[in-house]
């Protein structure tokens, strides 16, 4: 098998994640789709790291994971406070800056 297949898989997962962000309206699911896209990028980084024979790709993937963890913490806090204010986790309901 050609290791490029990992890149194809990563592209496919990224596309699925991007489509999910466009079609779903539950904020939590949208957030999960973003996580899916980040994971797909990580897979591409790891595959590239193997192709080029150095560990820099893995380091970048590691930093992506750290940033994703920070992003999830803040994002979920925003969703929780949004849910408290509007009693709904739908992104359509959050169309105003103020309640």
């Amino acid at each position: 098998m050609n290791p490029v297949n990992y890149l194809y898989l990563a592209a496919l997962l990224f596309t699925i994640g991007a489509t999910g962000v466009l079609i779903r309206r539950n904020a939590i699911v949208v957030f999960m789709c973003i996580e899916l896209m980040l994971n797909a990028c990580n897979l591409a980084f790891v595959a590239f790291s193997r192709m080029h024979g150095n560990l820099d790709g893995q380091i970048i993937a590691f930093f992506t994971m750290v940033v994703a963890a920070a992003e999830v913490v803040v994002g979920l806090a925003i969703i929780v406070s949004l849910f408290r204010a509007r009693h709904s986790a739908s992104v359509d309901d959050a169309s105003l800056m103020k309640l």
Binding site: N39, V46, Q58, A61, F62, M65, A68, L76, V80, F83
Partner: peptide, 30 residues
């Protein structure tokens, strides 16, 4: 792919911490 450290970190951080955080918020929201 030979990324042994990242493989373990992926399980610990993503499925262990991030997805559990997601499930926690899902429980909170309904």
């Amino acid at each position: 792919n030979g990324a042994y450290f990242l493989g373990v970190v992926q399980i610990v951080v993503y499925t262990g911490a991030i997805m559990m955080l997601f499930l926690f918020v899902v429980m909170l929201v309904g």
